[in-house]
């Protein structure tokens, strides 16, 4: 129970090994890069209490990424740290929405980070993550279904947290609402990339690992529409304007992030840190 990685039976996934790898990389890379973006906010949030709360969410999310990388350890025989730190840009499978910078500037130099974008991106993403975990819990790959049950437990708080910010800032009206509406538009432009399951979608669904993109998106809309209606927000159409991360397409934002997050690792990848 506690150590599912050791119990992976490769035959579980023999029908579609690529589809399983792809799915696990998507899940791991999504959480990893968003947790990284969250870690850049540390110390810079709108007030101190929020800095502390937000950091717990980033830690949980990085913890989920670690669980997914550990599932891959058993499947691709590369350790989780190397998977997280050494894979080149084109092998990354995260949605482009999640790699985008938090705002203008660098986390150490003039970071003019956009709280509205952060709230909307996180709220939309975590709701999609919840829908995915619910699907994975019923999925055919047992180790992943078990991981999804665990991950799901921590999402209640994440959703409560981001929903509170989302609702309050939209209800506040004025400048806050204008910024939030702009952020919703920006997130929508690439939100389809979050639901996208990449080139192996058909196999994933046929193998019973997860439900289709279309189904995931419909469930997301069912959850979100009542909330958006109450806040009188019209959702712009979703797109993948910046490209499809599931196909290894990425932006300079991810390139910069990778060089930062592996800076120390790369000094000596074989050393123990």
């Amino acid at each position: 129970m506690t150590n599912t990685t050791n119990e992976i039976n490769p035959s579980d996934s023999k029908n579609s090994p690529n589809a399983l790898h792809e799915l696990l990389f998507q899940l791991a890379d999504d959480d990893f890069i968003l947790a990284y973006r969250g870690s850049e906010w540390l110390g810079l949030a709108p007030f101190i209490e929020e800095d502390v709360a937000f950091s717990s969410i980033s830690q949980d999310t990085m913890g989920h990424a670690t669980m997914f990388y550990q599932l891959l350890e058993g499947v691709v025989a590369i350790n989780a740290n190397d998977l997280a730190h050494s894979r080149p840009l084109t092998e990354r499978r995260n949605a482009i929405l999640l790699e985008k910078v938090n705002g203008p500037g660098h986390y150490l130099v003039e970071p003019r980070y956009d709280w509205a974008f952060t709230v909307v991106r996180n709220y939309f993403y975590v709701t999609a993550k919840k829908v995915k975990m619910d699907a994975l819990k019923k999925g055919s790959y047992k180790p992943l279904a078990e991981a999804a049950v665990k991950v799901n437990l921590e999402l209640y708080y994440h959703i409560l947290h981001w929903k509170t910010w989302f609702t309050q800032l939209l209800k506040a009206g004025g400048e806050a609402r204008t910024r939030m509406i702009a952020a919703i538009e920006k997130v929508a432009e690439d939100m389809d990339g979050v639901f996208n399951l990449g080139l192996c979608e058909k196999e994933m669904v046929e193998s019973g690992f997860i439900e289709s993109e279309h189904s995931l998106k419909q469930q997301w809309l069912r959850l979100m529409n009542p909330i958006l209606d109450e806040l009188k927000v019209t959702l712009p159409p979703f797109a993948m304007k910046s490209g499809n991360g599931r196909a290894g397409e990425h932006t300079k934002d991810l390139e910069d992030a990778l060089s930062t997050l592996k800076e120390v690792y790369e000094l000596d990848p074989s050393a123990i840190w």
Partner: peptide, 18 residues
Amino acid sequence: VPKAPTLRRKLGIMAKVQ
């Protein structure tokens, strides 16, 4: 924090700075 060399170090230093 973003540069810590392993997943565990990334988590540990995040918790510490938090």
